[in-house]
């Protein structure tokens, strides 16, 4: 009983520390949510940190819905970031035969007043840099679709990197709009 004031003081101190702790966690979880919202949807992010291999992060991946013609194709877009310390390179992709016949890497180029498609054998991604696959620019082309790509569908795309190896990602099919288009590289 003699110790009540001291005990009370101690309790108040503990409560204050606890409150501060709660505030701190609340604040930090808030900012975590913000970071996720601005960075990329969680489900669209795949990270592979194989031992001694650069970590590749794939964000904002999506493929274009298609009209449903025979032998049609689609394109997948994403932001691929090299979180590792070594240069990496996206060299190819593949999908299951139940999705499409083949996958190629292409870039859309502007030549004078005309646009055309050029197949490429890969894109380098420097450490800390991002490769942007965007409408009107670099894209992963998915050819000979087995079935129409309908908004809401998803499929598994395997992307192959020189250093990081194979990375599987779930790709949602979306209506792809003009906004956020790349400025196609000029070619002479």
């Amino acid at each position: 009983m003699m110790h009540t004031p001291k005990a009370a003081r101690r309790l108040i101190l503990i409560a204050a520390i606890a409150a501060a702790g709660i505030f701190a966690t609340a604040c930090s979880s808030d900012s975590d949510e913000d970071a996720e919202a601005t960075a990329a949807p969680v489900e669209a992010t795949a990270t592979l940190a194989a031992p001694a291999a650069p970590a590749i992060e794939i964000a904002d991946i999506r493929a274009r819905a298609t009209p449903g013609l025979e032998n049609e194709n689609s394109a997948a877009y994403a932001v691929i970031t090299n979180r590792g310390t070594e240069k990496d390179r996206l060299v190819s992709g593949s999908v299951d035969a139940s999705v499409a016949g083949r996958v190629e890497l292409h870039t859309t180029v502007k030549e004078g007043e005309m646009m055309r498609m050029v197949q490429v054998d890969g894109w380098d991604i420097e450490p800390g840099a991002s490769l942007e696959l965007m409408p009107g620019g670099n894209h992963v082309m998915i050819l000979e679709l087995a079935e129409q790509f309908v908004v809401g569908d998803t499929f598994t795309l395997t992307l192959v990197f020189e250093q990081a190896g194979e990375i599987e990602v779930e790709v949602p099919v979306m209506e792809i709009a003009t906004s956020g288009m790349a400025t196609p590289g000029a070619m002479n």
């Binding site: 013609l69 049609e72 498609m117 009107g136 082309m141 709009a177």
Partner: peptide, 9 residues
Amino acid sequence: TFCPDLCPL
């Protein structure tokens, strides 16, 4: 129609 990128956009 076989245009994969710009035409559908």
